[in-house]
Amino acid sequence: MSPNIKHVLLILIAGALFAVACKKKAEPAQTPEAPEPAAVHSFSVNGSVREMNIGLENPKFPEGEGRSEFMSYCAMCHSLKYITMQPSFPRKVWEAEVTKMVVKYKAPIDSVTCKKITDYLVAIKSVKE
C-alpha cells in the first residue's frame, strides 16, 4: 500500500470514529422513566393450604462496563438488593465478596467475568482505601 493511500485510509477511519462520536453526543437527553409499579404480593388460606406470593423489586442500574454481567450472574442466586443495600466499599472488599460467592457458595462464574463484575461494583459503589 502506498503511503498516500495509508494516510487517506487513516483519515477515513478517523472520520468515521469522529462521526460516531458526534452522533453519540447528539442523542437527545433520556426522558424520565415512568415510576416502577410497586411489587405485588398475595397470601391466602384455603382449608389446609396456605400460600403466599412475593412480587420482586426491579432496581435500575447505571450504564457501565460489566453491568450486564452483574445483572445476570449475581441474580442467579439472589436479588440485586443484596448489593444495593451495601455501603460503598474499597475495591479489596468487593473482590473478597465476589471471591466468596464463587469459592464458598459455589457460584458458577469464571475468573474473567468475576473481574468484570468486581470492576462494575467498584464503579457504582466504592470508596478509596
Binding site: 503511503p3 483519515i11 478517523a14 469522529f18 457501565g64 464503579a123
Partner: peptide, 28 residues
C-alpha cells in the same frame, strides 16, 4: 497528511471515551 490523520484518530477516540461517562454512584 500523516500528522492530520494521527491527530484525527486521537481526537475521535478521545471524543468516544468521553461519551462513556463513568457511571454514577448508587445509594439506596
Amino acid at each position: 497528511l500523516s500528522f492530520i490523520s494521527v491527530l484525527s484518530l486521537i481526537v475521535s477516540l478521545h471524543l468516544l471515551s468521553c461519551n462513556d461517562v463513568p457511571p454514577t454512584k448508587v445509594t439506596e
